[in-house]
Structures are given as structure tokens and as C-alpha cells.
Simulated scan of single mutants.
Amino acid sequence: MFDYQAKENLLEGKTILVTGAGAGIGRSAAIAFAQHGATVILVGKTAKKLEAVYDEIEAAGYPTPVECPLNLETATEKDYGDLADQIGQEFGHLDGLLHNASELGQLGPLDQYDSAMWNRLIQVNLTSQFLMSKALMPLLAEAPTGSLVFTSSSVGRKGRAYWGGYAITKFATEGMMQVWADEVEGITGIRINSINPGATRTTMRAKAYPAENPNNLPSADDIMPLYLYLMGDDSIDVNGQALDAQ
């Protein structure tokens, strides 16, 4: 596991947006960020799940979060522009953006891959992240130290048979991170990196490995040290890095 002990007030006063915040790693990240002082903007397609995370954060006495239901499969460039306007009006800037939401899609040979599923994965796993990042980049630049974190995978760093569109979109995510990180290097206070969570006890992992015993895997809470590190100012000089949570 990534060896880092976050200070209790690491994210105090920061505003951080998390996609896929209703469950799994996104939920754990949202709660961990709030626990360390951040006001978290919860983005996800299922309002009921976001409400549950909101209630959990509020009940713990952490800074009151913001719910923002948004379907990344259907959201348009205007939707992301509207989101940026709302954040700008309420907070003036954005300290952190965690792209966590992803679709697994189908697992199988590429020559049998469903074209509709392909297009869906490109939209959710790649295009939505580009459009959201583009819209929110000016707000990240307004922050004293803005941090943008993409979520990758081991199959996005070395191709593996039958991982199809998921693996390919993760390769593209790594490429987008590297290009954007190089563009902001030394020009703005923004830093851009990616995280490979590794094998984690999540619903997506269970779909990919149905015969695996989930109790043998770390929980999403267990891998939070790297997420906290990249959102806090201890990582201020880290840019363009593909990092592993485990």
C-alpha cells in the first residue's frame, strides 16, 4: 500500500469534485477528503446514492458536501460549462478534481466487441473526462495549488487480452494525463497525475472476476493514502506521474 500518513487537516478549506462519488472508490475518496477538511462536490448519475454519501458525511460532522447528479454518458459540453459556472459562483475556484467514474463494458475478444458498447466506453471513460477537465481547468488554475487526478488501471499500462474497450480507454486516459501535465508544467499551479487503484474490493472488480473471493482484497478505504497525498499540498511538486495505490 502507498505509504503516507495524512495530517488531520490536510484538506482544510479545499473544494474537491469527485466523479462516481456514490459508491466504491469514489464514495471512499469523497468521505476521506471530507474527513480531512474538504468541501466535496459529489458527482454521479444516481441521486439516491449521492444522497446516502451526503448524509454520511454530514452525520460525521465533516464540511457539508454538494450533490450534483450528472450522467456522464449523456452530458454535453454545455452541461460541463454550466457545472463550472455553478462552482465558480459558489466557491470561486476548485482545488481538486478526481476523475473516478468509469464503465467496465464487456470483456472479450476485440473482433467480437459490440460497437455500441465501444462508443459508450469512449464517452464515459474518456470524452466526459476531457470535457469536464476542459471546463474546470480555469477554476483549478484559480486555486493556490490545483490537483487533477485521473483513474487508470494496470490494463491501461500494459495491454491484456479480452479487456477490450476498458483497457483501451485507460491507455487513452494515461495519454491525456501525460499531454495535459506537460502543457501545465511550469505555467500554472496545476498538477496532473493518474492513479492505478489496483485490485480492490469493488462492484466493478467483482464483475470482472466473479470467481474471486473479495475478502482477499483490500477495501476502497485501504487505498486512500495515495488519493489524499495527491489532493494535499505534500504532492505540490508531483506532476505527470502514473502512480500505484498498492
Rank of each mutant, 00 (worst) to 15 (best):
M117D: 15
T200F: 01
S194A: 15
S147L: 03
V149Y: 03
E174W: 00
G165P: 03
S153T: 07
R120C: 06
T151W: 04
R201P: 00
G164R: 04
I190K: 03
D111M: 10
I190G: 02
G186H: 10
V179T: 15
I187H: 11
L148G: 05
V149G: 04
D182N: 14
T203I: 09
M132K: 11
V124L: 08
T169E: 07
N213K: 11
L148R: 06
L121V: 01
G164L: 04
S128K: 02
R191C: 02
D182S: 12
A141S: 10
F171G: 03
M177V: 02
T200V: 05
N119Q: 15
V179I: 14
Q178E: 14
I195F: 04
K158H: 12
G198F: 01
N193D: 05
F150H: 07
R201E: 11
L131G: 01
L217Y: 09
R160Q: 13
I122Q: 15
W163S: 01
N196R: 09
L140K: 04
Q178F: 00
F130V: 13
V124N: 02
D222T: 08
G165K: 03
N213R: 05
I122T: 09
T169I: 08
G189N: 13
N119M: 12
R157M: 12
L217R: 10
Q178R: 15
E174A: 11
G146I: 02
L126V: 08
A220K: 07
A143G: 07
P197N: 09
